[in-house]
Nucleic acid binder design. Structure first.
Lengths: 177, 177
DNA sequence: CTTCAATGTGTGCACTATGCATATATGCAC
DNA sequence: GTGCATATATGCATAGTGCACACATTGAAG
């Protein structure tokens, strides 16, 4: 039988992702794939479709079409890449706006959840999350996948337990006191 | 900017759900909807399609077809319900087997993740999870949705923070010491 | 008893998302 | 230059989903 801690962690993950996918937004960002692609373009600017394909874990054709959809919606733009083969993708002004809106909605939802805990408990939770995530990344592509919906702000400031390890850096400390 | 604890919780939720959806299984259970429906039938036996529709948060037609697919695959069966209108769904022998396999795979994955922590930390995590989930259920339908992938074993034994609250019961204590 | 709204299930249709196979253009090694 | 790998794009088939609608059953109001 499943252990209780494990089972409850599964429930929380489901709760978080259900709410993440239910966040209201513009029509072009209805599905989780489009959102991940938009955020990934914001996080890894001037990347090619092929690089982003890994971050959102899609087949080539699906990635091409996801990008085409965002371009049609005016959320991202194709610039000339390093090659004449590849393109360099970047957020447009409205793309930046929508990406920010989704990050803010994600943050507010997560704040509501973490807000069930008091200050001390939140610090403990952060320590546990760092310790868990530090060891769960398989390779750089996996790290990109895990970070595909992130706001990279806090990680740039205090270190990302997912990407630090990929870069050979030590496990970051928890924030604050 | 997103707070760090919040951001890391979002990453962990993504990690857990990505792995949950990637668990290998039979063809009829390829998608997350089919899996949720199968597990929900196991958890709420003899329920009607309409009841399960809420647990997996689908439209009526999608629920009808999800059920039909599982029936075609021999994983669940339709029995006569309380009405002549409704059906009572139940797992077949192979349905029970596949549901068990998915629960075991889910448990092993979650054990690997929680296993990054030592014994004391796991106890702390369980306390935090109980406290969070206790307050995050909106209504009985939402509770069913959150529990749609659970193995209800540990909750029957030690209390489910999601459903306890719906039933007016107090917040369950953490397990063990 | 009849009528009619509500409930539970099922179907036709359109749309989106996805993967496989394939095509085209470019880059690079030899 | 030739040949292979890379990057993007397209045709096709398939699965999943929602809306609108149809049908059967239930129950309550008259």
């Amino acid at each position: 039988m499943t252990q209780r801690t494990e089972n409850l962690l599964g429930v929380l993950a489901l709760l978080v992702m259900d709410e993440m996918n239910a966040q209201p937004t513009v029509a072009a960002l209805a599905g989780p794939t489009a959102r991940a692609m938009l955020n990934a373009v914001g996080q890894y600017p001037d990347s090619s479709i092929e690089v982003l394909r890994e971050a959102v874990d899609l087949s080539h054709p699906a990635a091409v079409r996801a990008v085409a959809g965002l371009v049609d919606a005016g959320l991202i733009e194709k610039k000339s890449g390093t090659d004449k083969r590849s393109v360099a993708l970047a957020l447009t002004a409205s793309g930046k706006r929508e990406a920010k809106r989704l990050q803010t909605a994600r943050d507010q939802m997560l704040q509501r959840i973490v807000g069930q805990l008091d200050e001390r408990e939140r610090g403990v939770l952060e320590s546990l999350l760092i310790k868990i995530l530090w060891s769960e990344t398989r390779d750089p592509a996996h790290a990109m996948q895990l970070c595909r919906l992130c706001d990279d702000g806090p990680c740039l400031k205090a270190g990302c337990p997912v990407e630090c390890r990929e870069q050979g850096l030590p496990m970051p400390a928890r924030s604050g006191t």
